[in-house]
């Protein structure tokens, strides 16, 4: 498995690891059977991502995609953070091996799941904002 220097950097020194006790939104995707679970914690203030933390059970790419995804949305307005795509995550990491693309999808979905929780807590239907959340990556189903 050939990882870029960026992936290795984020794996070796992951940013924003941890939990937020009074998070405004928490999302978890993936499952232990597949070997990947990502959990995202959001703190929102004045329409911006004031803080974001993650916890990930998974391979090097799973940890690196979670790490860089948190870095990409931290401090950003909600609207911008919601636009984060797995493609942008891949680009920011200077690429991922084909077998690891699903990790970037999980990172995008984990953030969206956290936003869904945020909207739901506020009594707002999250679907118009985050679309349908894939809590499983489904990579396992295609094989």
């Amino acid at each position: 498995m050939l990882y870029s220097d960026k992936v290795m950097d984020h794996f070796a020194n992951p940013r924003n690891v941890g939990e937020i006790a009074d998070a405004d939104g928490v999302g978890e995707v993936g499952n232990a059977k597949c070997g990947d679970i990502m959990k995202m914690f959001l703190k929102i203030k004045d329409g911006k991502i004031e803080d974001v933390k993650f916890k990930t059970f998974g391979c090097g790419a799973a940890i690196a995609t979670s790490s860089i995804a948190t870095e990409m949305i931290k401090g950003k307005p909600i609207e911008e953070a919601l636009k984060l795509t797995n493609k942008a995550v891949i680009e920011a990491l200077d690429g991922l091996p084909p077998a690891k693309i699903h990790c970037s999808v999980l990172a995008e979905q984990a953030i969206k799941a956290a936003f869904a929780d945020y909207y739901t807590k506020k009594g707002i239907d999250p679907e118009p904002f985050v679309g349908k959340i894939e809590t499983d990556c489904h990579a396992c189903d295609t094989h």
């Binding site: 498995m1 059970f57 391979c59 090097g60 799973a62």
Partner: peptide
């Protein structure tokens, strides 16, 4: 438990 093998190897 609760650890993934590839991350461990890396």
């Amino acid at each position: 438990e609760a650890v993934e093998g590839e991350a461990l190897l890396l």
